[in-house]
Design a binder for these strands. Structure first.
Lengths: 340, 340
DNA sequence: TTGTAGGCGTTATCAG
DNA sequence: CTGATAACGCCTACAA
């Protein structure tokens, strides 16, 4: 039975090393200003007592926490998991800690989460996309919390962003689809409310259609939550109705994978009878058969850059500037000429 | 240009509402003990000033942070992402916040992370598996930090665990494989160092072989990092050598998906020429063609239960008890009788 | 180079 | 039901 030791404090270390608390604090924070022998005595005491500084006290006294908060829709989405992992690794390198919180794609809880992270002392925040309540923006401004938007790019916005242009990226893919001859297009998109990335991708498809000058059947759009099974169901809805599309463009790879799976189960040849496209280029896209034609997004790079920018805003006290990352069309096998 | 307002404190709220700080604190923490009109005045002031309590100060005064830390190998692994998401959702329901940290599968950094989380005031910790340095265990004991192990189950260990028996789960799958007639088995496993889950799964395969009483070719084992591409490479190694296996059992679905992909590229029919099995049953397993025969692990339930147990340990001040979760064999299409 | 002492924003105890 | 007031553990001038 381990004895529940009292947690050692700076004071305990000071006493044990025979110095003042100020000296111990200096050993830990500004090692340069301490004489070597003193330093050694102190570090020894730290070691022996198993001392770890109390974060709350430290942040209260110094007004800085070296903590950065991130609010994402869900970690279960591979793109966020991957970006966040890179974000946290980079943060760690830079001496910061990550505090995560997820909304579960419920935009209405974001403000509460922002407040929670700020109250926990987050020095700055990483947010996904621009679509959020005015109250949240107001709070951020009022508290003067540095914040950076990712997974989106809009240089003229009040918040700096590090990401990519969802609209033109999807537009490029749509142009390619159209150039192949597709005129009956359907879309499976993530839920649009509170999700500007999804909305912009859909807009990109419409842009491409308009600009092509061709005539199209009406664009059927199914809006559905994130998840393979939702992609499967959406495909059924699309194919059970009359006038079937020759191509289904999906808002992300997961929906596309679901649609693809279901299409095959229904005996449809992909891409022979039906073409399907994705977005994101997660590993899943390479693994399914046929491999998904999709848009590659540099999630890891985005996470890394976001961390660097946030820290630079914090330490250089600058305003932060936006960075556009390149996406890339990944031509694979799930898209071909239309079957009819 | 937003004016950078000074951050309001309890004091500001108190002054603005014409009450003492104690009353404001009570309004926020024990609303029952405050008169209605007072309450309203205070909440109004809170609203107007945009007050958010300072976490550091609060935790310092109350000795409790309502924060639980989790240290996982990486969020990029879907099983952890999923479990963690459920963990955080449940925690949120129970009024707690999650602090995450990842080791990137480098066991040597875990102790530092434990200290970091504890110093940040984590009331308790969630850890993955049992394989860690004695120093880490010692620190946990010394500081008396409640900790719970997940993704593993060992009721007789010093730390309570909520998870499943990796060894017998894999053993069951191996028994099934053997019962089908396979005698040339190869294994692709995650790196074993610091990963008892992987080691136990491998042991489970050996158990099944021994207990079957059959004679086997020697068990070739490839140890490789996490990732689809590593699964692909491992398959090449296995199939480029002489005496090819009739089945490859993989330590997780991601490695299996990589192996499967590569096998198909090499023109091998799966399962006709080669059977492949996975472990975890992530969505990927259902999506690939042929669908993976694997072992289903209730990741979400594990995360949820872990959160509940941890909070119960904290609030009932009990020792915590271990819970074994059931895994389930998922018979799908990537495994069949051996081809020879 | 080292020590002293005040203050950071809350909560909790104890009176009223 | 409400108000003083003493911690909580650390940092940082300022002094020595």
């Amino acid at each position: 039975m381990p004895t529940s030791q009292p947690i050692p404090t700076l004071d305990d270390v000071a006493r044990s090393a025979g110095v003042s608390t100020a000296t111990v604090s200096r050993c830990l924070n500004t090692p340069g200003q301490v004489a070597k022998p003193t330093m050694e005595r102190v570090m020894k005491a730290v070691e022996v007592l198993g001392y770890t500084p109390n974060f709350g006290a430290r942040s209260m006294a110094s007004k800085r926490t070296h903590t950065i908060g991130a609010i994402i829709p869900t970690m279960e989405n591979a793109i966020f998991a991957r970006g966040l992992q890179a974000f946290q690794e980079e943060l760690h390198k830079l001496g910061y800690t990550l505090l995560v919180s997820s909304t579960g794609y419920r935009p209405e809880v974001e403000e509460e989460q922002v407040r929670a992270l700020v109250s926990r002392g987050a020095d700055a925040l990483l947010l996904i996309g621009f679509d959020r309540s005015p109250e949240t923006y107001a709070y951020l401004g009022k508290r003067n919390v540095p914040a950076l938007v990712s997974w989106a790019y809009a240089p003229d916005h009040s918040l700096p962003s590090i990401g990519f242009d969802n609209r033109t990226s999807m537009q490029e893919l749509a142009q390619h689809v159209i150039s192949l001859g597709h005129r009956d297009i359907a879309v499976i998109t993530a839920v649009l409310r509170g999700n500007d990335r999804a909305a912009l991708r859909l807009a990109g498809i419409r842009d491409a259609m308009e600009q092509s000058g061709h005539a199209f059947g009406d664009l059927r759009v199914i809006e559905t939550p994130y998840g393979i099974s939702h992609g499967e169901r959406a495909l059924d809805q699309l194919m059970d109705g009359g006038n079937r599309p020759t191509v289904i463009m999906c808002g992300n790879d997961v929906l596309a994978a679901g649609a693809l799976k279901r299409a095959k189960e229904r005996g449809l040849g992909v891409p022979k009878d039906l073409s399907i496209t994705g977005f994101d280029d997660i590993e899943l896209a390479r693994i399914v058969t046929p491999a998904l034609t999709t848009v590659h997004v540099p999630h890891r790079e985005m996470g890394r850059k976001a961390a660097q920018e946030l820290v630079s805003i914090l330490e250089k006290r600058g305003a932060g500037h936006s960075v556009a990352l390149e996406t890339k069309l990944m031509i694979r096998d799930s898209l071909s000429l239309p079957s009819r």
